[in-house]
């Protein structure tokens, strides 16, 4: 895949947002808020950053790999996988329906190309990504492993077991990203369980912290991910703090936890789609 212009990448991100909204609306279930906020990240990663092969192989040897630990962002991940050629875009309409490969949370059981481990029960993906990164080191494979986590997800203890381990083992072919939107299902993270100084937390665990302060601006995300790549391979694992807004792109959804796990009704969908141009053709 050749490099695409910012305008082209933004079009993909807009289409991803439409896909997400239409998918969760169709089954009246799912999680629209966070994938709307991570659209730029998903698109920058799959359409610009990753050296990857949509002709899917489980072991991913010689490829950059991405893992989604906060599996409830599945609609966004499925959209970017389909739009980058892992499976037919048409298949997005089966999301969360019986006999679909597009399970509510990502799974390997139905052999959906692009998925290497199930996620949904939070806190597990970082450990898995570390294991893959270590397998790459044994194999002398110089490609990178990427992993996205939610900020609320950092309340899980296993994350910090993994954080301690990755630094101790110098897993420097790993680029983690925290979707730092400050929201979780019951409310703002600072009210539910305050994360306090995340930058200092990761640094004290021995990680290099790379702040991407505008996670909903395509150029900022591209620049931030380029910088992360430069920081990798220097003896420390890298974590991006990606500042995003939950629900970004739809005026009545942005910046609140209310759309974390609730689908829009017919009227709300029409309103939302009116704010997002159909750039690549709906599924």
């Amino acid at each position: 895949m050749g490099k695409q212009s910012i305008e082209q990448l933004q079009k993909v991100a807009t289409q991803l947002r439409r896909d997400v909204l239409r998918m969760v609306h169709a089954v009246q279930s799912g999680h629209p808020g966070a994938p709307l906020g991570c659209a730029e990240f998903f698109v920058a990663l799959y359409f610009d950053q990753l050296h990857h092969n949509p002709d899917f192989k489980m072991d991913g040897k010689g490829e950059d790999l991405f893992f989604l630990s906060n599996g409830h962002l599945s609609a966004g991940w499925y959209s970017v996988l389909a739009r980058s050629g892992y499976f037919p875009v048409e298949e997005l309409k089966t999301f969360r329906k019986l006999n679909s490969r597009l399970q509510g949370h990502p799974a390997t059981h139905e052999h959906l190309p692009g998925i290497r481990v199930a996620s949904g029960s939070l806190g597990q993906g970082l450990s898995v990504a570390i294991g893959v990164a270590q397998a790459k080191k044994i194999e002398k494979d110089d490609k990178l492993v990427y992993i996205l986590m939610g900020d609320g997800e950092l309340q899980e203890g296993q994350i910090w077991e993994a954080a301690m381990y990755a630094a101790h083992q110098k897993v420097d072919n790993l680029i983690a990203t925290v979707d730092y939107n400050g929201q979780q299902i019951d409310g703002p993270t600072e009210k539910i369980m305050d994360l306090k100084n995340l930058k200092a937390k990761w640094e004290s665990f021995g990680w290099v912290v790379n702040e991407i302060t505008n996670g909903n601006d395509m150029q900022s995300v591209l620049d931030g991910l380029e910088k992360a790549k430069e920081l990798a391979g220097k003896g420390k694992p890298v974590v991006n703090l990606l500042y995003t807004e939950m629900g970004y792109g739809v005026d009545f959804m942005v910046g609140t936890h209310k759309w974390h796990g609730s689908p829009p009704n017919d009227e709300q969908l029409a309103n939302a789609l009116g704010q997002l141009e159909e750039t690549l053709g709906d599924y």
């Binding site: 072991d59 290497r116 450990s127 898995v128 990504a129 294991g131 893959v132 270590q134 397998a135 993994a162």
Partner: peptide, 8 residues
């Protein structure tokens, strides 16, 4: 989790 990753 690391074991699952190594297996991948």
């Amino acid at each position: 989790g690391i074991s699952a990753g190594l297996a991948i």
